[in-house]
């Protein structure tokens, strides 16, 4: 920003009660704005997007070279494994289903999805926006954290602590038994 000599371009008229206050050299209209909190997408956002794109791709390639995706024997409807397990993210549900098929497999997942969809229409007070774990949102955040932790525990139990006939097993014991 550089000041231009106003006297030359806009001489003051003594009859007027108002006058041009300042001329500023700049590239954007900044009238009435607080100090600029915005940055241009080009290049600030785009460069970050490129960095994430490249690093995610690179990490995947490295992982793919060293860790093989599982592949078991060809599918055989006559050879059921015991226990047969769903993909890991459904093992929390499978764990619930082992207690009650209707409640665990239908009612609870239905409720979870319904409540998730309704969240922004139930909790509308404009506090704690854009701030991690804001004090004003302690209750909402605690409830959601509890939900995540319970799901995580169920998935861990379903993945590591369930053996034949969905009986409780301790993973390190199961390894010894082999």
């Amino acid at each position: 920003m550089r000041e231009v000599k106003m006297e030359n371009t806009h001489p003051r008229d003594p009859k007027k009660t108002y006058g041009l206050m300042e001329l500023v050299k700049g590239t954007k209209p900044t009238v009435g704005l607080k100090p600029d909190k915005m940055v241009f997408t080009w290049p600030h956002v785009l460069i970050r997007e490129m960095i994430i794109f490249v690093s995610v791709s690179a990490l995947l390639l490295v992982a793919a070279f060293f860790i093989d995706a599982p592949l078991e024997a060809i599918a055989n409807a006559n050879l059921p494994p015991n226990p047969a397990k769903a993909p890991w993210y459904f093992l929390g549900l499978q764990e619930l289903v082992s207690y009650s098929a209707l409640v665990g497999g239908v009612v609870i997942p239905g409720l979870i999805v319904t409540v998730l969809i309704l969240v922004p229409y139930l909790d509308r007070k404009k506090v704690g926006i854009g701030i991690w774990f804001a004090k004003e949102r302690a209750l909402a955040n605690s409830l959601f954290m509890l939900f995540l932790v319970v799901m995580l525990i169920l998935i861990i139990v379903g993945t590591f602590f369930r053996g034949p006939n969905w009986d409780f097993v301790v993973p390190w014991e199961a390894v010894k038994g082999h």
Binding site: V119, P120, R124, K125, K126, F133, N141, F144
Partner: peptide, 10 residues
């Protein structure tokens, strides 16, 4: 969720 980013208008 933890940043309250679902509040109106989002």
């Amino acid at each position: 969720f933890f940043t309250g980013a679902y509040k109106p208008p989002r």
